[in-house]
Design a protein around this nucleic acid. Structure first.
Length: 490
RNA sequence: CGGGGCGUAGCACAGCCUGGUAGUGCGCACGGUUUGGGACCGUGAGGCCGCAAGUUCGAAUCUUGCCGCCCCGACCA
């Protein structure tokens, strides 16, 4: 076990916080509620960005950039949207500071008050649809498929590294379409992109679903989501995709002329995933020794640690290892040969385990003589001695195996902790133990609210693949057509 | 914004109750011995004790007021 790292069983949230800090992913900043993403954490984000961006491009999207500031009047235009975000907005009121006449330091120059306040974007629908108004005239201008990578600010009272901070990084896709059907298909397509990314890259099984009206994005007609289970049995929303109908087109007067020469409002979607996915990755796979990274997102996939006594030994190990490093690189594997003389091998083993490096190769003098290498995998913590010959192929296969294994493990965990519940007593008992509860819901906001008040559990989603099944609401006893997923959530 | 806790070296903390000018561990620097799972010994550097005012001969310690951070709740990706 890592030195002094709290265990998941002892204190799950402290375990999480410590992993984030000790693995060098992020730390709290001097600015309240904001985080500093450190190089190792940012490297994971860069890998996520790369993979997602490729998927966005493959589905026909292009990147652009819109301003950080949203004039208050823009935000106001779509009423529900405005209401939903109003209570968490940072507002710019002035554009200048000046020397404090009463002493040292600076004060806000009262003479430099902005005519109209600017909101630091909590999301960009308003700015973007205000822009789209000028870009869209004809059906020939559609669909408009644009994404941007940026930061946003949502003034949170209580923050946690990666999971909830006042400022965070994300991507937001904003598309405009000529027909309702096309927009709905886009929202569903992007949800599937997210689900694929979560499952195949993060190794995180997700439930695809739609939100209840209560949980919907402010201004959306339908919110699709992917929900994942963390190791403490709580749910975490890993991505959302919205069908916005014509709400924003109407608010910003975005009309186009269709093939019949008639004016119509454009149909919209928006979709986003955030740096929160890094939190999901940590909480889904890591163990009491530290981080466990899926090979596809690991900044370092393979670390090679030389084990030696004298500088001469190190030299001969380095000589033997050099071609292997080259071969691994040639095979597209990111590898680090850690010949740093400042730290001992035992220290390095522990350190790379804490950092979640999927595969570690240990090479010592004994290996040199025997033509072997010690192969250690992070996900199972198992070690074996293998012939140096053919090691690159072996590692390549091993990375795939680890990627598959951590997904399998997470899926098995979710299945073991998902319960079909049909009585209210059972519901209350189970929710205390954690996990997902699949239960009947009568479709009313009243019941949803009552369940939340009594148990802190919310409806995470109505699964897209939910089979029609007549039943009785677990709380109210009223008629229900299908089961939904209840859980306590992050 | 309500309830609780905490601000002392880069980090984690002790000292405060019972006032006398600051200590431990990790880390850091140097030297040596070590090296197949977080080495050990020795020497050394490093602090306006969150800020401000008050009490006192004297304040990290007592009083008051600020500021900041963390945890628990309501809100949220």
């Amino acid at each position: 076990m890592a030195k002094g790292l709290p265990t998941r069983a002892e204190n799950y949230s402290e375990w999480y916080n410590e992993i984030v800090k000790r693995a060098g992913l992020a730390e709290n900043s001097a600015v309240r509620g904001c985080m500093v993403i450190k190089p190792y954490g940012f490297a994971i984000w860069e890998k996520m960005q790369r993979a997602l961006d490729d998927m966005f491009k493959e589905t026909g999207h292009v990147n652009a950039y819109f301003p950080l500031f949203v004039p208050k009047s823009f935000l106001e235009k779509e009423e529900e949207h405005a209401e939903g975000f109003a209570k968490e907005c940072a507002v710019v009121t002035h554009y200048r500071l000046k020397a404090n006449p009463d002493g040292k330091g600076l004060i806000v120059d009262p003479a430099a008050k902005l005519e109209e306040e600017l909101i630091v974007r909590p999301t960009s629908e308003a700015v973007i649809w205000n822009t789209y108004k000028n870009w869209i005239q004809s059906w020939r201008d559609l669909p408009l498929l644009i994404n941007q990578w940026c930061n946003i600010v949502r003034w949170e009272m209580r923050t946690r590294l990666f999971l909830r901070t006042a400022e965070f990084l994300w991507q937001e896709g904003h598309t405009a379409h000529a027909t309702e059907q096309e927009a709905v298909e886009e929202a569903e397509r992007m949800l599937e992109v997210y689900a694929t990314f979560a499952e195949q890259w993060i190794g995180l099984p997700v439930i695809r679903g739609v939100k209840t009206p209560n949980e919907r994005f402010a201004g959306a007609i339908e919110t699709y989501c992917i929900e994942a289970m963390m190791q403490d049995g709580k749910a975490l929303q890993a991505g959302t995709s919205h069908f916005l109908g014509q709400n924003f087109a109407k608010a910003f007067d975005v009309k186009f002329v269709n093939k019949e020469n008639q004016l119509e409002y454009a149909w919209a979607t928006s979709w986003g995933v955030t740096t929160r996915m890094i939190g999901a990755l940590i909480m889904a796979h890591s163990d009491d020794n530290g981080l466990v990274l899926p090979p596809k997102l690991a900044p370092i996939q393979v670390v090679i640690v030389p084990i030696y006594k004298s500088p001469e030994d190190l030299a001969s190990i380095s000589e033997k290892v050099a071609p292997i490093v080259d071969e691994l690189k040639a095979a597209g594997i990111s590898v680090k040969y850690d010949d740093d003389d400042q730290q001992r091998s035992g220290w390095k083993f522990a350190e790379y385990e804490l950092k979640g490096v999927p595969v570690r190769l240990g090479v010592g003098m004994r290996d040199l003589e025997a033509g072997t290498v010690e192969v250690a995998r992070r996900d199972t913590l198992s070690k074996e001695s293998r012939p140096l010959e053919g090691i690159v192929d072996h590692v390549n296969g091993l990375l795939d195996e680890i990627q598959a294994n951590i997904y399998k493990k997470a899926l098995a965990f979710r299945e073991e902790n998902t319960f079909r519940v049909d009585t209210w007593d059972e519901f209350k008992e189970q929710i205390e133990k954690g996990g997902f509860i699949s239960a009947h819901w009568d479709g009313t906001a009243e019941t949803e609210e009552a369940v939340k008040n009594e148990t802190k559990a919310t409806i995470r989603c109505i699964p897209l693949n939910a089979a029609a099944e007549a039943g009785k609401d677990v709380y109210s006893g009223k008629e229900s057509a299908r089961r939904v997923i209840f859980a306590r959530a992050y």
